[in-house]
Design a protein around this nucleic acid. Structure first.
Lengths: 193, 193
DNA sequence: CGCCGAGTTGAACTGAATCAAGAAACGTGG
DNA sequence: CCACGTTTCTTGATTCAGTTCAACTCGGCG
């Protein structure tokens, strides 16, 4: 666990959109905690409220919740992206979501409480926050439209087109619930091609 | 169309969460355009990119898109809330969504371009933006979870529990596609109670 | 009165879930 | 390197929720 080495990847992945002042970068870096964590590590247990935001330098995380005893995958996040489960934090009610690593990963974490202090201090970090949430919103909105009326076959095709690497890295059981279908249906869809 | 009278409702609805300085309030008010618009008025036509954010002081707006010639309702927004379709603006690609009024309404509008200038100038307005998008994200996330694995009957029950007034104010055809089902199915679900 | 949009009802059909059983792949220890 | 158990994936038979298409009811409203 090292906190001093400034990794380029974190700032590189946001740089195209939000320029941070040197002071902001420094403040952010001083609070970000970097860890190498094994496959299977649970960042946020089911039932807890997620209180940090996580930047994935390397590896793969998934978020899921339980519905009738089954795990429903809500989201995958791979290297150079952020993950968290804000609904619980915002509403101050556990949202039942668990975040765990499904590959050995390098994770930078930052507690919301600290982030909020940074929001107060640095306008450009607040902008970064707004930007990242906007991206997240657009992505979730896209998924919503998909689930509303697009048939399973087409949802699978979209996944293959947009995130083909997921299919290599993730068990199909996770993928199926992410697409809103059962594993058997996913298997049949795949068999058709 | 009046632009001078500062309505309380706009600031009241955000005040619990984000305190704006007098300067920010003034700047916002100077750019907000207030209009009384009739039922059926189209704020953003299908195929256009939405370039403003709308605050609904009174009335009801819905967002929809066309899928196989059918209107799919994406969202309802009633008095004291905001509506817009940011996906198109963010990705700079029309998202096919149309925003129209389904009741006579009083609407305050603010072009994104102006809003972004305000973001630059006023840290607290940027915070307001972040806050509002976060709220939106949480709501869309909730809907996503609903559509992923909750049966239609239960989705309808949730709607009755959370937004009962919608059922009085909106034709069932709009409600059904919002819930991701056909009008016939909605009718049958209602008949069971 | 007759039209028209909104809502309901019915019958046939279909995509996907469920339940159950196998097959393949994977890791671990001997 | 193989044998074993476990997990992952596939396949089949059945059931069910929801769609589709069509006809019908009801309440305005010109």
């Amino acid at each position: 666990m090292e906190t001093t080495t400034p990794t380029v990847s974190f700032f590189d992945s946001i740089a195209p959109f939000v320029k941070l002042s040197p002071e902001s970068r420094k403040a952010l870096l001083s609070l970000l905690k970097k860890e190498s964590l094994p496959k299977g590590h649970v960042l946020v247990p089911c039932g807890d409220i997620c209180r940090s935001v996580y930047y994935i330098e390397r590896g793969l995380a998934r978020t899921f919740y339980l519905k009738d005893g089954k795990e429903i995958t809500d989201r995958f996040r791979a290297e150079n992206s952020f993950t968290c489960s804000m609904s619980g934090y915002v509403t101050n009610t556990p949202d039942g979501r668990q975040i765990e690593l499904i590959e050995p990963s390098v994770i930078w974490s930052l507690p919301y409480v600290e982030l909020e202090k940074l929001y107060d201090q640095f306008h450009d970090i607040e902008r970064l926050g707004r930007y990242l949430i906007t991206q997240e919103m657009v992505e979730i909105h896209r998924r919503l439209g998909e689930l509303q009326f697009i048939p399973a076959q087409e949802r699978y095709n979209n996944l293959v087109a947009n995130q083909p690497s997921l299919l290599q890295r993730v068990p199909l059981g996770y993928i199926s619930s992410y697409l809103g279908i059962t594993q058997e249906t996913l298997s049949r869809i795949r068999a058709k091609v």
